[in-house]
């Protein structure tokens, strides 16, 4: 593998990582603040993508579509929080797993009921289409660079939100002691609805951004949800920084593994065996990474608490 190809693959890994961070950030925020396992996070990702596809189809504007994805997912998130999730904070993780699994069934099939069984069209806007040439002569799609940029902006925004704003102070306070915060006159119920809606909006936006280069269809959220869990567990649940580092680690590991493992096995195996063994191992690699991280650091890279 030449050096420039290696750099390009690193960039691809970074890009995949940032994409994963977009989805994982909302999940880790919700878990950090409310201690809630939300398996339906992937469904909010899907709702964002469908809203974007519907609005892009009607107006032709990608910016409006992105805004719609934020709004639709936030609205869906707030509604779900008020109707269902709110009752689950005091429950153990088991009940949360079952209830949010039920939500996946309802949201997936509900979406199929409204939009039909066929995949929807959502594409990159013309002004972001095509590749640009980077220093070193690498031709790289502009849209993927945009995703990296948006991801980093969101990461910075979340850090600022939590460190600097009044809402962030309340969120941090609510994480450490919800009774005291409630006693100080903060409306915990409203705070939680807002946090859940923010997490949902982040999932929805990433659904729109990712949907434009993948496929908008029912079930698109479930693999993403599993990967997002892998990311936040590696990073340490509740930590935004951990989610970012974990996402990039997963993205780079997965991309380089796919690119290099088959070649590695060709050094001591015949071609077709190396291709199949290398590919098989590459598809397991992120789970191996996750298990390895947890064995060494049982609460993830930046995890503070065990629950």
């Amino acid at each position: 593998m030449s050096f420039s190809l290696f750099v390009e693959q690193l960039l691809n890994g970074l890009q995949l990582g940032v994409t994963l961070f977009l989805t994982a950030s909302g999940l880790t925020l919700v878990f950090g603040v409310m201690g809630l396992i939300n398996l339906a996070h992937g469904s909010l990702f899907m709702i964002g993508a469908y809203a974007a596809a519907a609005v892009a189809g009607a107006t032709g504007s990608f910016l409006l579509a992105s805004a719609a994805s934020l709004a639709a997912a936030a609205a869906a998130g707030a509604l779900i929080e008020m109707v269902v999730i709110r009752r689950l904070y005091s429950r153990d993780h088991l009940d949360q797993v079952l209830a949010t699994f039920a939500l996946i069934l309802i949201l997936s099939e509900g979406t199929r009921w409204i939009f039909g069984s066929f995949p929807l069209y959502l594409s990159i806007p013309d002004w972001l289409a095509g590749p640009v040439t980077l220093p070193g002569g690498i031709r790289y799609p502009l849209y993927r660079l945009t995703i990296i940029l948006v991801g980093l902006v969101i990461a910075a925004g979340l850090f600022l939100l939590i460190a600097r704003t009044r809402l962030g102070i309340r969120i941090r306070a609510g994480e450490s002691d919800r009774e005291i915060v409630a006693a100080l006159g903060v409306n915990i119920a409203a705070l939680y609805t807002i946090v859940f809606a923010i997490g949902a909006a982040l999932a929805g936006l990433s659904g729109a951004l990712v949907g434009a280069i993948q496929s908008v269809q029912v079930g698109m959220g479930e693999p993403v949800m599993i990967l997002a869990f892998v990311v936040i567990v590696i990073g340490g649940i509740g930590s935004i920084r951990g989610a970012l580092i974990g996402a990039i680690l997963v993205g780079v590991t997965d991309t380089l593994g796919r690119a290099m493992l088959p070649d590695l096995f060709r050094l001591f195996m015949d071609n077709s065996a190396a291709t199949s063994v290398g590919s098989a191992l590459a598809s397991m690699l992120i789970y191996v990474l996750m298990a390895a991280v947890l064995i060494v650091r049982p609460t993830g890279l930046y995890g503070a608490r065990g629950a």
């Binding site: 190809l5 691809n12 890994g13 995949l16 994409t19 993948q214 796919r258």
Partner: peptide
């Protein structure tokens, strides 16, 4: 769902 790596290859 992400083929950036394969396309680079």
């Amino acid at each position: 769902k992400d083929y950036a790596g394969e396309i680079a290859q």
